[in-house]
């Protein structure tokens, strides 16, 4: 069932992908086929193989139970929050928070996780910024 749904989704996506390519117009064509042709070719093959997936699906993969999905969702959400927090909070604070949270998710104790996170952030900061000279955000709230 999963494969059938995925195949169906990919069918729709390949049609949408090709449909959008129709608007890639250029006034002056430097080559005979222009920017549309490659997307059309890709979409055609994608459509074909997705159709095959709908017709001949694999056995169902073993999906995790709901509780694990919630954890995964939280972890992904934390990655998104990290992306938004990194510049305002700075590397040290946001990484400490992120690593603590992940440590808890991987069944560590929160205080140990926090300690590990502080050490990890400081070590990584020293290696990458001080030793290798790679700029990381310092934060805007300080």
């Amino acid at each position: 069932m999963t494969d059938r749904l995925t195949g169906g989704l990919l069918l729709v996506l390949s049609l949408g992908y090709a449909y959008q390519a129709r608007s890639f117009d250029v006034g002056f064509m430097a080559d005979p086929i222009g920017p549309k042709a490659m997307p059309f070719i890709i979409a055609a093959f994608m459509f074909l193989f997705s159709l095959y997936l709908v017709i001949r699906p694999d056995p169902e993969p073993d999906w995790p139970v709901r509780r694990v999905w919630v954890n995964k969702g939280l972890v992904l959400l934390s990655f998104v929050l990290y992306a938004y927090a990194l510049v305002p909070l700075g590397f040290l604070l946001s990484t400490t928070l992120q690593v603590t949270f992940l440590a808890v998710m991987f069944k560590g104790k929160i205080w140990k996780g926090l300690a590990a996170a502080v050490v990890a952030s400081l070590v990584l900061y020293s290696i990458f910024v001080l030793l290798l000279g790679i700029p990381l955000p310092v934060g805007k709230i300080w």
Binding site: Y82, L86, T95, Q98, V99, T100, L102, A103, V104, F106, K107, G108, K112, G113, A116, A117, A120, S121, L124, F128, I134, L136
Partner: peptide, 14 residues
């Protein structure tokens, strides 16, 4: 694991 994997994630972010 609870130290290793979060640390690897942080390095990936960098």
């Amino acid at each position: 694991r609870w130290i290793l994997l979060p640390a690897v994630t942080a390095i990936s972010f960098i």
